[in-house]
């Protein structure tokens, strides 16, 4: 288990990191915890010539909230997210999902920015990011842009980040009114990745009907994906058990042509599990909204 040779940089500021990335571009990889990258390098499935380690850039780990919402530094670890009072209050689904990632060792090292940028098809964070309508702040030396979660995940292990961009922050808009979020997963007993994971955010109006709903599914197909049919069934209705059931039944409806199949679960079973897990996540989100 020896990686190919690579050059290692540990910049201490964003500017320094961005300069390095601008210099090395495609031959470089950002090291943001390394819980996926280092194993695949050791397996020699990836061989970047340069690693730019962001763990020495202090401002990238900051977590804060204000009237606009929650801002999470891309280098915040799963452990920090699962323990953060700010996160637990503003976006409990993030804390809930972060606490379920892999094991203690991984949670101590792995970061939310690393997870989102990697876009593992069974990652927990991408689903939560989608459900909470987050945005990724992508910076280069020259400027900054925000990428909405809906445009962020492009394909298997592929995101909308450009080669010279570094994700510095994740922004989660403040939830208005009676809003609740939750993450539920059925995990692979070996890797603890999601066989099916569902994140849900539900907002209730004063009459108790659903005014907004975002539901995202991970583990079931090549990337985390919104379950828009599920959302549409929920919106405008009182979220009774039968409505939630009916909505959850469509959780994998849009994924039927792209179901993951492997030794752990057939596509059919993943698709089925998505509906069960969606029901659990939506039910919990609704309870939190009330």
């Amino acid at each position: 288990m020896v990686t190919n040779n690579f050059e290692y940089f540990a910049p201490e500021s964003f500017d320094e990191a961005a300069q390095l990335l601008a210099k090395y571009r495609d031959t470089a990889k950002i090291l943001a915890g390394g819980q996926s990258l280092l194993p695949i390098m050791k397996l020699r499935l990836a061989a970047p010539e340069v690693l730019i380690d962001l763990s020495h850039v202090p401002e990238l780990s900051e977590i804060s909230s204000n009237g606009d919402g929650l801002t999470i530094g891309s280098m915040a670890t799963y452990y920090e997210l699962s323990q953060s009072a700010v996160v637990q209050k503003a976006a409990p689904a993030i804390a809930e999902a972060a606490g379920q990632v892999a094991d203690v060792q991984v949670r101590n090292r792995g970061t939310i920015g690393g997870s989102l940028s990697h876009s593992d098809p069974a990652g927990d964070m991408p689903a939560v990011f989608l459900a909470l309508n987050g945005a990724a702040v992508a910076r280069t030396r020259r400027g900054t842009r925000e990428i909405a979660s809906d445009r962020f995940f492009v394909d298997l292990l592929t995101t909308a980040l450009r080669p010279t961009e570094i994700m510095t922050q994740i922004k989660i808009p403040v939830a208005t009114g009676k809003t609740g979020s939750a993450y539920s997963k059925f995990e692979n007993k070996a890797s603890h990745y999601a066989i099916a994971g569902v994140a849900a955010q539900v907002t209730l109006g004063s009459d108790g009907t659903v005014t907004a709903a975002r539901v995202a599914v991970t583990g079931v197909s090549s990337k985390s994906t919104r379950a828009k049919r599920t959302e549409r069934i929920l919106i405008g209705k009182e979220p009774t058990a039968s409505v939630i059931r009916r909505a959850s039944d469509r959780a994998a409806a849009e994924l039927q042509d792209d179901l993951t199949e492997d030794i752990h679960a057939s596509g059919e079973y993943r698709s089925y599990l998505a509906t069960v897990i969606a029901e659990r996540a939506i039910t919990a989100a609704v309870e939190r909204a009330r």
Partner: peptide
């Protein structure tokens, strides 16, 4: 061997 690592072999 499809279960070739601890990612795929469930201990």
């Amino acid at each position: 061997l499809l279960s070739g690592s601890m990612l795929d072999y469930a201990l």
